[in-house]
Design a protein around this nucleic acid. Sequence first.
DNA 1: TTGTGCACGC
DNA 2: GACGTACGTGCACAAC
Length: 876
Amino acid sequence: MGNKLVLIDGNSIAYRAFFALPLLNNDKGVYTNAVYGFTTMLLKILEEESPDHMLVAFDAGKTTFRHKTYEEYKGGRQKTPPELSEQFPLLQELLDSFGIRHYQLPQYEADDIIGTLAREAENRGDEVTVISGDKDLLQLVSGNVTVRLTKKGITNVETYTPGFLKEKMEIDPEQVIHLKALMGDSSDNIPGVPGVGEKTAVKLLKQFGTLENLYDNLGEVSGKKLKEKLETNKNEAYMSKKLVTIELEAPLEIALTDTAYTGYEPSAVRKQFQDLGFESLINRIGSDEEESKAEMISVEVEKEKPLTEDILLDETALIVEILEDNYHTSPVEAIVLSNEKGVFAFSPEQLMESDTFKTWAADSSRHKWVFDAKRTLVAFKRYGIPVEGITFDVLLASYLVNPAVNNHDIPAISHRLGETGIPTDEEVYGKGAKRKRPEDDVLYEHAGRKALMLYRLKSNLEEQLKQNKQEELFHNLEMPLALILGEMEYTGVRVDVDRLKEMGEELERRLEEIKKRIYEHAGEEFNINSPKQLGPVLFEKLGLPPLKKTKTGYSTAADVLEQLSSQHEIIDEILLYRQLGKLQSTYIEGLLKVVHKETGKVHTRFNQALTQTGRLSSADPNLQNIPIRLEEGRKIRQAFIPSRQGWVMFASDYSQIELRVLAHMSGDEKLIQSFKEGEDVHTKTASEVFGVAPEEVDSDMRRKAKAVNFGIVYGISDYGLSQSLGVSRKDAQIYIDAYFKSYPKVKEYMEDTVRQAREEGYVETLMNRRRYLPDMNSRNFNRRNAAERTAMNTPIQGTAADIIKKAMIDMAARLKEEELEATMLMQVHDELILEVPEQEVEKVTEAVREVMEGTVELTVPLEVDHSYGKTWFDAK
DNA sequence: TTGTGCACGC
DNA sequence: GACGTACGTGCACAAC
């Protein structure tokens, strides 16, 4: 029985990976993109091929035996970028950790090593797979040798067998060198016959078979010009053939037996991945059940013994295990404590009844370390147990340290810090529909392991917060905020279900009518909600001009359809259908689905550890995107009502907070002045940009200025502005230039921010929230540009987020202090929504203004507007 | 189950 | 000259 040998062209794959991936560097500032790409390819190969022999061949150096034939061989080639060169040693170390043999031979290229071994193995009857990005290797294809060439990217490969080669290139493997001899190869500086490309070469080979036969019968070549070219470049052709022919008898110092591959040691590879910063790949290693069990950190869990005072220490990790994301509805499965005394697991039934536990939980001097403070708090609240003294949340700490990490759970953080023996929730519980509660033992052990790690992780994260100067941000902003958000979520918002249903029925009727009219216009019935079906109806059947395409077909986005509005009546009907359909599916049906049956309330979850800028997000339901701009949709807000009779919905929002933050951070006198004088900032901008007196600013000028301000805040580009204004890019650029001329310090600030981001690798907000921008030095124009805009935007958006978060904390304190019953319900980025007893409205009005305006002192005043009414709709 | 297109908010 | 305004969530559809 033959062996299975995989031969990899190391240089070729590393090059591919390098150019296919952005110039990533790891936390040590070492470039790793080529190694990373190579590794993903390698893992795929190991999985797909399960080789028992393996070798990665590298080119040895600048000169090879081929240079004796032709000095200019590979001449004119770009020097290997140093960012890539420095990765080769890393790559070889990585291969060592995999236990994969790598080899290079002076004067020879990787091709020759591969060719020699492939031939030898083939002769023995082994099965060989060659991996490369270089078509020259195709000459090795045979019955036993398959060549897999990378296509786009690195993991995307095309597998060449003799049959496939014939189909694809119309030649046999033996003809590959003849083909190259004729057509040459500019990347290797191989001349071939000038003027002969792939097409002609294939045609000639079909007729003559080989280069030699071609020249023996040159007279039969059709075309005078071609014949001449072949004639005059005969030497070049033969030399080219010699150059591209892979040496099949290179004097290797290794034998096939040296390439034996028996699999890798997961621990060694894992360590290597950690050093390289390949967090995302770690989980792909050693998923083998046996192996990962053996590596799991062991935990002695004491199960369901009666809780006694002696195990409740002042510093204890507390894990509340809930399987589903939604902790408002999903049951608590287990509670685990971990501290110096050990790891102790309890069923909720047992613990929630224990007075010993309740006393400990309510004691703020007894510190609890948790994962997801808000989740923990709400979970206990559901059992009527107040918890005090939560002083450390691993989730929030990890998020602050680096929001770009999209997985902050305990196994993931543990992995990043080098502890790998923690399986993920998904591994233990399954995911999606298959997620289920395991046996008690498994559950307790898993939760116990997490509790143990939580206890251990705290000090490391604390240290990282300290390094980032984020202790204040963590302890005095995010931690207290978590408690407040927990209260808000648990309180929930009352929904007028009947009102929603009424609106739903009305919508249903209207949608039905519109649908009919659309079908009439179209002359057929189709699914209006399917862009794939709508496209052909509009742009083929009705002959409307397709103004924009998506990667799957015609674009039917609103901005496209609006431009076609005058050309066919169907367009406005479709836009209306979309608008109402959105209201129906997302805001009527979607909202009704998440209303609690008993309480008639919705309990959103604010995600406090997700956005890259520091804003909150909201889900199930998302209360931060309830319609407001169009009257039709705004009515949805009529269904959000106070939870008690005689109360009102009260909304309070910051006016222009982001531009005020910009004024403060840039120190631009004119912008500061503008806010100090209480001017209309868009009118003022218009007056500046268009060079007219404020009185002479018309509505169109103001509209444009508003868009400019918007763009400034979001990290402007001329294209973006031109899109939103419907003007040319050139004009958009003129507005931007005019803006920067009027507000020179803003321009300076933007430039400084970008420069600093490039140097430091990150940007920061007023309160030291941090965002890393690895693309600042990308060679890819788009990525770099996007990173630069992000650098400009994040400090502004993020500082605004810092400010409202602080205001929420102050607000909670103020309400308590004044013993008001008013309650915060929602936060929508620059807005707080409360429910307030009517008789408290006056006091709350004053409190909200004082607190929100006074929460931080900037060089410009902060201003808030407020409103209230019987429903959220009426608070306008 | 996953990716795409679309639409809602700030 | 490239691409494209920032940041989110959720729905329906269609391909896997």
